[in-house]
Simulated scan of single mutants.
Amino acid sequence: MRTWHVSDVMTADVIAVGPDATYRELVDLLAARSINAVPVVDDDRRVLGVVSESDLLRKIEYVGADEPHWFERRRRAQLRKAAGRTATGLMTAPAVVALTSTSVRSAARRMDAAGVKQLSVEDGLGRLVGIVTRGDLLKEHLRTDQQIAADVRAAVHAIVLAENVSAVSTRVERGVVTLAGRVERWSTATLAVRSARLVPGVVEVRDRLTFDYDDHRLADPVPAGFVA
């Protein structure tokens, strides 16, 4: 089963700016390209930070604002951005990045944890090679049911290879997988379902598998402190 990586879904034709790009240049660029953020890179294409629409809005949000009290740390940072004139003063740094080899699912978790809408993508040398957005990460769910079913069957076959593979049937409808049939052991059924869930494009797995032998006690670890 092939795992999808950021390199499979990212936009390689990425727009970037240097640290000296001015506020107006950044506003014009985001508007002209219909994008909501742009990476800031050095001469070697290494990512220094990202300027987003939110960063640029600080200049509007805090125009004429009073100097904050010493304890208003967050507001002080926002006011500094409001006073910024170039990408260096406006950007959010360090940038949240992903490698081309990062899995799509790991990238989604990283994006969610950081509360960002896109990730700059770097190669092994730390150079900017692309951008991946939330929409890009959803591309794996554009796979057809036939493509998903083929990968699910291959994944399940690898699990039940020592058993009767013909006893397991696979049906996929709009990304929802139904596994039905009978296998020898509980652990085999459990692994088959887990493997199916990992196939790119799978929305849900409905487990209709039965088994002859319940080996879950042998498969489960002994509880801490248990004495035989």
Rank of each mutant, 00 (worst) to 15 (best):
Q78L: 13
A83V: 13
V27P: 05
S106M: 09
L30H: 04
R105M: 10
V14P: 02
T22S: 14
A77K: 12
M10C: 01
A82P: 03
A16W: 09
L56F: 03
A82W: 10
P19L: 10
P39A: 01
V14C: 03
A16R: 03
I15N: 08
V97F: 10
L57W: 02
S52T: 14
S103L: 02
L29S: 06
S101L: 08
E67P: 15
A95S: 08
V40L: 07
A77W: 11
V51C: 12
A95N: 10
A98P: 00
T100E: 04
L79T: 02
G49V: 05
R46A: 04
R58H: 12
A82S: 06
A93R: 03
Y23H: 10
S52G: 06
R24S: 11
D43T: 08
L99Y: 10
G18S: 02
E61R: 05
R73A: 15
V96W: 04
A82I: 11
A31R: 14
A65V: 09
T11R: 06
D42V: 00
D13E: 14
Y62W: 11
R109E: 13
S103H: 04
A77D: 15
V104Y: 06
R80G: 09
R58C: 14
R58M: 13
V40F: 07
D20T: 12
R73L: 15
Q78C: 13
P19N: 08
R109I: 11
Q78F: 14
A95D: 10
R76K: 14
G49K: 00
K81D: 07
K81A: 07
L29C: 03
L90K: 03
F71M: 13
V27W: 07
R85H: 14
H69Q: 14
V63T: 09
A16D: 12
A108G: 11
V38A: 00
M91A: 01
R85M: 08
G18W: 00
G18H: 08
M91S: 01
V97N: 07
T100H: 05
A65L: 04
E72F: 08
V38L: 00
R33S: 09
G89N: 06
A108T: 09
L99R: 11
R110H: 13
A37D: 12
R73F: 14
V41C: 06
G49Q: 04
V14E: 00
R80T: 10
E25L: 04
T100N: 03
A16N: 07
T86F: 02
S34Y: 12
